[in-house]
């Protein structure tokens, strides 16, 4: 009988562990805060919505930065909440409907939010440019790379190929639209092969020569470029990248309507990983919040931690970010046409 009791005990322990794991989904505590705060300002619980899966890049950034916002925002206690689903739409919808009282904000990739809105993706209830933008944590150039053994060496070569360029892609993300517009502007035929599972799969397809080229974050492609497995032929960034002075940017080689598109795209990439709140936030709270984020992103302790984790911090103040977004809002209508065209081409 005693044995049976101990067995039951083991099962109960297991159950407890699983409960803890499940709860860990949400309450995984950020690093302990420093104790004594000089004055007990109005304590408030602030929810940080991360519409991406726990443990992935965006989530890692959010959880790394959150404790530092707490540190520089008196009285704030930030709870990171992963609300996943429909490629980030579920979490972003939730932010759109939350009260603009400064107690809820979000952190994710600006391009995905904007494109979900512009392409009228399933279930979108928000207007991407109407959120209150609070600050950017990081951005990095994106690169159009071809395989190391590819016959192409410059972006102009693609037009001379005399055959459709095979472009493996994951689906309707910013890279997909960028490639479609680029092909129109430079006059090369494009065969977008959608359906690859992720960035690793498209990278491998390009290295193997199954596809001609793909667009990815520069940091992802860098080791492969160094090893000679990939060749960069175009950058999506406001200026040429220091390490690759010979590789032109998308803005340089386009003109007219295509350049308008590339401007929006480049701005989108500039805004990349950012914090934003619901539309119509109180100006005073917004200023306070932006200042806290700016201070947090300049904290030397955070910068050291980020450098160690290879998650670089490239901050931009909330005001400046808001201006960038407003610029995008003014010209966003122009890119809807090319986007719809690109979508129609693959269906």
């Amino acid at each position: 009988m005693l044995k049976r009791k101990s067995l039951v005990l083991i099962l109960v322990v297991l159950l407890t562990i699983s409960l803890i794991t499940a709860c860990g989904q949400k309450t995984e505590a950020p690093a302990p805060k420093e104790e004594v705060k000089s004055e007990p300002v109005k304590a408030k619980d602030i929810t940080l919505i991360v519409p991406n899966s726990p443990g992935k890049g965006m989530d890692t950034y959010a959880r790394m930065i959150a404790p530092y916002i707490e540190k520089h925002y008196p009285g704030a206690k930030i709870i990171v909440k992963n609300i996943v689903g429909a490629g980030g739409v579920v979490g972003t919808n939730q932010l759109w409907h939350s009260k603009p009282d400064g107690l809820t904000f979000a952190f994710t990739s600006f391009p995905s939010v904007l494109l979900a809105d512009l392409s009228e993706a399933e279930g979108v209830q928000f207007k991407a440019t109407e959120f209150t933008y609070l600050g950017r944590a990081a951005t990095e150039p994106r690169v159009f790379a071809v395989g190391g053994k590819s016959e192409f060496n410059t972006i102009e070569d693609l037009a001379k190929a005399g055959r459709p360029i095979k472009f493996p892609s994951q689906g309707m993300d910013e890279d997909f639209f960028a490639a479609a517009v680029m092909a129109k502007a430079l006059g090369f035929q494009l065969n977008q092969i959608t359906g690859y599972e992720g960035n690793a799969d498209t990278a491998l397809a390009v290295i193997k020569g199954e596809g001609d080229g793909h667009i990815t974050a520069l940091s992802d492609a860098l080791p492969m470029i160094k090893a000679g497995d990939k060749k960069p032929i175009l950058m999506f960034s406001p200026e040429r990248v220091k390490d690759f002075p010979d590789v032109p940017t998308a803005l340089e080689i386009t003109s007219g309507e295509a350049q308008d598109f590339m401007k929006v795209l480049t701005n989108m990439i500039v805004a990349h990983r950012c914090f934003f709140g619901p539309p119509g936030m109180d100006p005073e709270v917004t200023t306070e919040f932006r200042a806290a984020i700016t201070k947090a992103l300049a904290d030397p302790e955070l910068l050291e931690k980020a450098a160690k984790a290879n998650s670089e911090i490239v901050p931009m103040d909330g005001d400046k970010l808001q201006a960038t977004v407003d610029e995008i809002a003014a010209s966003a209508q122009k890119i809807i046409g090319p986007m719809k065209q690109a979508l129609a081409d693959i269906k």
């Binding site: 159950l15 499940a22 949400k26 996943v84």
Partner: peptide, 13 residues
Amino acid sequence: PICLVGAYAIKGR
């Protein structure tokens, strides 16, 4: 309960 909690723990939904 272990099964139900497990199902919740996968994605937290």
